[in-house]
Simulated scan of single mutants.
Amino acid sequence: MNYHDFKEEVIAYSKEIGIDKIGFASADVFSELKGRLIRQQENSYQSGFEKGTVEERTEPSRLLPGSQSIISIALAYPSKMKDAPKSKKGERRGIFARASWGRDYHDVLRDRLNKLGAYLQEHFPEVELKSMVDTGELSDRAVAERAGIGFSGKNCAIITPEFGSYVYLGEIVTNIPFPPDEPVDDSCGDCNICVDACPTGALVQGGQLNAQRCIAFLTQTKDFLPDEFRTKIGNRLYGCDTCQTVCPKNRKKDFHLHEEFEPDPEVVKPKLIPLLSISNRQFKETFGPISGSWRGKKPIQRNAILALGHYKDETAVDELIRLMNEDPRPVIRGTAAYSLGKIGNEDCYKAIKDAIIKEEDSKVIVEMEKGLEFELQ
């Protein structure tokens, strides 16, 4: 088989099925990445969501024996929302990060990868392949960088010449020896805007992320949010876009190429107070189709409670008092008490004082005490 010609056929087919960009890389060991991952572990910079060992994440042959190349794909997503509702007094809203707008990208990219894989099998019967999106062992960014999709920016995102960093990534490891593409030159240069703009200093230096400080990670945790980050998340319910929105390479980048990625404004910019009483069934029906729902409703509700405290929204007081007194989840009770303290009217402090007498969970009591400290400031 002429692999160069077959590569051109695969590229042409990828356009037919709605893949915005495709690149080809060798399946060699990702040696530089291996060193970086080891340093990440040593510095405790990992999120804990990573899959596989360092070797599995950097040696494609461990995932597919006999692998010879990796096909990397990218699909662009919008950076601007049409008809975005306004957050106003009495109707404060939270926000999901752009990467969670529209239908869960894992499903959309898997569909494209499955079609691409079927095409390979049809034309190359001896093909072996393994595809993955985001939750696989390989680093989507490292593969995309090697395959010439874009360069890895200081904000730790792949930046493409065409779409900026607003792209989803996926890959197929295969035993077909496709000719590799050339990497794209890094063009961040001296620009350090993203590093300086990160609200929590999670970008330790250009291209290195301390995931434990990253708001995108923190919004997905289920425990009490550490104190130092509570004033930083603002009204974010899931994820963070700061390091992308400030990037000059993303200026005027807004692509609406896939209907699946178009956001429902009421879903990705929802009113905060209704989130506090939403049932599991309602949550699944409303938010289940988007990627930001994967951790369930508890982190979203915790973040919504913090956002209401951030806004000092007095219209939320009754609902927060109800949660503080009645919710069976300690994280929700305690966070509600903290935000009541931030809102800080007489009803808030009286409710906390009444509740703390009956509370039995030591961690919740600590949060109630934090809430009462605002009365002294």
Rank of each mutant, 00 (worst) to 15 (best):
I215G: 02
G234N: 11
G207D: 12
P226N: 08
T221E: 14
V195E: 13
L218P: 00
Q212N: 13
A211T: 11
D196K: 15
Q205M: 13
N192D: 14
P199C: 10
K232C: 08
E228W: 01
C214P: 01
Q212H: 06
L203N: 10
I215W: 06
G201K: 05
Q208Y: 15
P199E: 06
Q208L: 14
G206D: 05
L203M: 10
T221F: 04
V204R: 01
C198M: 08
F224G: 04
L203E: 01
A211H: 09
Q208W: 10
L218I: 14
R230G: 01
T219K: 05
D196F: 10
T200P: 06
T221H: 07
Q212T: 15
D196T: 09
N192K: 15
T200D: 11
T221S: 13
G234Y: 01
L225C: 05
G201M: 02
F217S: 09
I215L: 15
V204F: 01
I193K: 14
L225K: 02
F229N: 04
A197G: 10
A202T: 04
I215C: 09
I193M: 11
K222R: 15
Q205K: 15
P199Q: 06
A216Y: 07
Q220C: 12
V204A: 02
G207L: 08
G234K: 14
T200G: 07
L209K: 07
D196A: 13
G201W: 10
V195H: 02
I193P: 00
P226C: 09
T231S: 15
T231E: 15
G234A: 12
L203A: 05
K222H: 13
G234I: 09
N192G: 03
P226T: 05
P199W: 09
G207C: 12
F224Y: 14
R213V: 00
F229M: 05
G201C: 04
A216R: 05
A211L: 09
I193H: 03
Q220G: 14
L225P: 00
A216N: 09
F217K: 08
L225F: 06
T231Y: 03
F224W: 04
L203T: 10
G206E: 06
T200F: 10
P226D: 11
F224N: 00
Q220D: 13
G201R: 04
Q220I: 05
L203P: 08
L225I: 13
P199L: 07
I193S: 12
F229Q: 04
G234E: 10
G206V: 11
L225S: 00
L209W: 03
T219D: 02
F224L: 12
R230Y: 06
I193W: 02
Q208T: 14
N192M: 13
T200K: 00
T219M: 10
T200Y: 01
A202Y: 02
T200M: 03
N192I: 15
A216Q: 08
G206N: 12
T219F: 03
L225T: 11
R213H: 14
I215F: 07
A197L: 09
A216F: 11
E228C: 03
N210V: 10
F229G: 07
T200A: 04
R213L: 14
V195Y: 07
K232E: 12
D223Q: 12
C214G: 05
I233H: 02
N210S: 07
N210M: 05
E228R: 12
I215S: 10
